[in-house]
Amino acid sequence: MTDPNVASRRLRRVNTGEALLVYLGIPVGFAALVFLAVSASSWTRGGRASEVARVTSEDGPLYLTSSASAPDPSVLPREIGMGSASLAGGGASGRW
């Protein structure tokens, strides 16, 4: 026969706070852990300077670049010096 004291200890009632802690706290805590694990790498990763810069004006040319700083599209050097020519390695031209 089971000792009633032992039985009562085994069948202890769970109060509301403990129930909330178990049924809400554990899932929320797990979700927070997953979020940290997923996003932690992006916090430490450096140099993802991939913001697209867009410089446009109403009548001016459309200019999109894949870096944070974009040059003023309305500025087009008249003289093509050695500096700019040496930066260009190749490419192609065509018409339609």
Binding site: P61, L64, P77, I80, S84, A85
Partner: peptide, 19 residues
């Protein structure tokens, strides 16, 4: 980079914009 607009000197203007 993507530029959509006038290129007064053609290829040279594109090279200048690239610089």
């Amino acid at each position: 980079g993507l530029r959509f607009g006038p290129l007064p000197q053609g290829r040279e203007s594109a090279v200048a914009a690239h610089a």
